[in-house]
Each structure stands twice: as C-alpha cells, then as structure tokens.
Simulated scan of single mutants.
Amino acid sequence: MENRILDVDDLRVSFKTYVGEIQAVRGVSFHLDKGEVLAIVGESGCGKSVTAQTIMRLIPTPPSHIKEGSSVLFNGKHEITRMSDKAMEKLRGSEMGMIFQDPMTSLNPTMTIGAQITEGLIKHQNMSKKQANERAIEMLKLVGMSNPQGRIHQYPHELSGGMRQRVMIAISLACNPKLLIADEPTTALDVTIQAQILDLMKQIQHKTDTAIIIITHDLGVVADIAQRVIVMYAGKVVEEGTLEDIFYNSRHPYTWGLLRSVPRLDSDSKSELSPIPGSPPDLFAPPKGCSFAARCPYAMQVCKDNDPAHTPITDRHSAACWLLHPDAPKVNRPLEVGEQAHG
C-alpha cells in the first residue's frame, strides 16, 4: 500500500495510578492514506487525544504504558511504539506535526514567533538562520498572517487567539510533514475565526497534500473538513466510515446519539437537544460486554455479556454493534438522526 501513511493496529494504552490501571485506549485500529483527512470524534474521555498523542509519542512513560502487541506504523517503515526518544525527536517536526488545542499554553511565551518557527527548521532542515527566517515569513504568509515580516518579532501575548492558532499551524507545517495531527484546533476560538482556521487547513491540505487527523467532538467541524470518520467510545472504535456513511447511514446507537445532540440552525428555538443519557463507563474496570450497553435504548442481554466485533457494512464502513447480527431484532435508524444529517 504505497499510499498508506499510517497504520494503527490494536493500539492499547493504559495509565498506572495509585488506585489502579486506567485502560484509556483499548484495541484501536485504523489507517490513513496520503492526502486524506480523517476525523476522530467522541465525547470527552473517549481516548481521542490519548490515541493522537501516542502516535506522536508525547505522553510520558510512566505513567502511560503502550501494551504489548500494539502497532503504530508510520510511512511503512517506522514502528512508532518501538522507536527511541532520540529517533522520535527526529521524526517529530520533520515528518509529523501537531496542532494543539490551546495555542496560548502550547507556544513559548518567552520566545518570539519567528524564533519558534525557525527552531525546527534549523534543527531538522539544517537551514541557516537567514534561510530559516525567510521560510518563517513564507509560512506566516501561507497561513494568512498580515505583515509577516513584523510578526516574526512579536511574542504570543501580542497576538489574538486566531493569530496564535495560525502560528501553531505555521510551526507544524514549516518542515513539510507528511502527517499533521490537529487536536481540537478550533475549540477556544469564536465561530468566525473557527471557520477561517478550517478554511485555512483545507487550503493548506490541498496545496501540500499533507495527511491530516483532526480530533474533535464538534460534528460541524467534521462535516466541513473530513473525508473519513472514526467514532470512539470508552477507548474503542465503535464505528468508522466515509463522511457520508457516518452522517447519512450511521449504524451504531452511539453515533445516532452524537448526531441527535447537535444543535440545528433550522429548528424551532424552543426545541430541546437530545443528550445521550447516563455517563461513560469507568475505565478502571471496563464492562465485559458492549461499553455503550448501559446507555443504549436498544441494549439486549448479549450486549451486556459479550463485546461485539466490527461488522462490515460496506468495504469502507463498519460498526461494532449486536444490532447488525442477522438474528438481532430489526431497529430502524431514528428519524431525527436522518433529519439532522440532512439539515
């Protein structure tokens, strides 16, 4: 598969604490092709960010622990789970980039914007300071910053939230990485700036053909940028498919719940959202059956006793749900989910 940039297979990550082991990621598998945009969605605490940061090897070990048998193969040749810290340092920044959720805490307040962009260029690309400065100005132009020659001398606190996020994107893209991971890149921004940042990411992805993983709980962001979607719950992938599969033909009750809980612009202002009742399971001791069974209105006894395997729906769409078993009772997708997807 020469187009394959990332292969994640049976990734399991735990955190050892004084009260026990938290099984944060429990057997996650997916792939990413060159130039593709993949969204990973789910509630807070479902394992999205842990998965992303494990791919970048940014989670300290200990307390985290990547379980035996987990595999993260980058570009067909780098087994991330077994690489040394020194080898990972060379890979991060040069071939893999990451945009973090809050640029104010991710940027160094004591360094100018220019110094933070040129740092990686000098280290990974062996550029002179002059070449790196020229590249930094070029990157700030690419991300739509006005007066880039002046901006490189400014500090993060002198910029707005949207500008800081643009700087984060410039830093992550400066060395032309093959993979860009964006962890909730628009959460702290107002809707106007959020739209600008998403447009910017789409333009850059089109120009550079960088593969992107976007981590989010916002299905509006997903609809705007992604080509494929992974839905995570309690540390597992419960459904995956193309954007159209997830929005128009989703088959897992958890995905239906996510779609029903999205506010709609065309609905009556008095209409209420439909939140998913209950809370996610305790990952100190995950349930033996389907993790969503306690919150699922369609749960059967088999759901509580046995964890469902993924059932293929098409060659690119699958879901882990006992309702897809041939002997399961027929359950129609809730009407309002279809309306939400088309709304």
Score class of each variant (00 low, 15 high):
Asn249Leu: 15
Ser274Arg: 07
Leu273Ile: 03
Gln227Ser: 08
Trp322Asp: 01
Ala136Met: 08
Lys129Gly: 15
Val167Thr: 02
Asn108Glu: 06
Tyr155Gly: 03
Pro287Lys: 07
Ala299Thr: 07
Leu258Ala: 05
Pro103Cys: 01
Pro263Phe: 02
His153Arg: 15
Cys46Lys: 06
Pro109Asp: 05
Leu283Ala: 09
Ala188Gln: 05
Met96Asp: 01
Ser267Asp: 13
Ala294Trp: 09
Leu107Ala: 00
Gln101Phe: 03
Ala294Gln: 13
Ser267Cys: 13
Val19Gln: 15
Tyr155Lys: 05
Arg12Ala: 14
Met96Pro: 01
Val50Ser: 05
Pro277His: 06
Glu36Leu: 04
Met96Ile: 04
Ile214Phe: 04
Val222Ile: 05
Asp218Asn: 09
Asn75Pro: 13
Gly69Asp: 08
Arg260Glu: 11
Glu336Pro: 12
Arg26Asp: 10
Leu91Glu: 04
Thr187Gly: 05
Gln205Asn: 01
Thr105Pro: 03
Arg4Gln: 15
Gly161Tyr: 01
Lys330Cys: 08
Ala170Asn: 00
Ser274Cys: 09
Thr110Phe: 12
Ile22Leu: 14
Val231Tyr: 06
Ile22Trp: 10
Thr112Arg: 08
Ile80Asn: 03
Leu198Tyr: 01
Ile113Trp: 02
Ser271Asn: 13
Glu79Phe: 11
Glu89Thr: 11
Glu21Ala: 14
Asp209Phe: 07
Val337Thr: 10
Glu138Ala: 12
Gly162Asn: 03
Gln165His: 01
Ala115Ser: 14
Met168Trp: 00
Ile66Tyr: 03
Ile66Asn: 04
Ile122Ser: 12
Val41Glu: 06
Pro297Met: 07
Leu265Val: 12
Gly93Arg: 00
Asp307Glu: 13
Ile169His: 00
Ser172Gly: 02
Ser279Glu: 15
Met104Asn: 06
Met98Tyr: 01
Met145Ala: 04
Ser279Val: 13
Val231Gly: 04
Val50Pro: 03
Ala24Tyr: 06
Asn3Asp: 14
Val231Pro: 04
Ser146Arg: 14
Met168Val: 01
Lys67Leu: 15
Ile171Glu: 00
Gly220Lys: 04
Gln131Pro: 15
Ala39Trp: 02
Leu38Glu: 04
Gly45His: 10
His78Ile: 12
Glu272Ala: 09
Lys288Ile: 13
Ser44Ile: 10
Glu95Phe: 11
Pro253Ala: 03
Thr110Ile: 15
Ser29Leu: 08
Met96Asn: 02
Leu121Ile: 11
Asp190Glu: 10
Ala170Ser: 03
His310Asn: 08
Glu239Lys: 09
Arg151Met: 10
Val37Gly: 01
Leu38Ala: 05
Thr17Glu: 12
Cys296Leu: 02
Gln116Gly: 02
Thr208Cys: 06
Tyr298Asp: 09
Met88Glu: 04
Glu184Ser: 03
Lys77Ala: 14
Phe100Ala: 00
Met139Leu: 05
Val19Asp: 15
Lys77Trp: 13
Ala52Phe: 03
Arg92Trp: 03
Gln340Gly: 09
Tyr254Val: 02
Gly47Pro: 06
Val25Lys: 06
Ala24Pro: 08
Gly47Ile: 09
Ser84Phe: 06
Asn3His: 14
Ser14Trp: 11
Ala341Cys: 12
Thr210Phe: 00
Pro280Ile: 10
Pro334Ala: 11
Ala294Glu: 12
Leu91Val: 07
Ala39Gly: 06
Ile171Met: 01
Asn249Asp: 13
His317Tyr: 13
Ile113Gln: 00
Asn332Val: 14
Ser64Asp: 07
Met232Cys: 10
Glu79Met: 11
Ile122Asn: 13
Ser172Asn: 00
Lys207Thr: 06
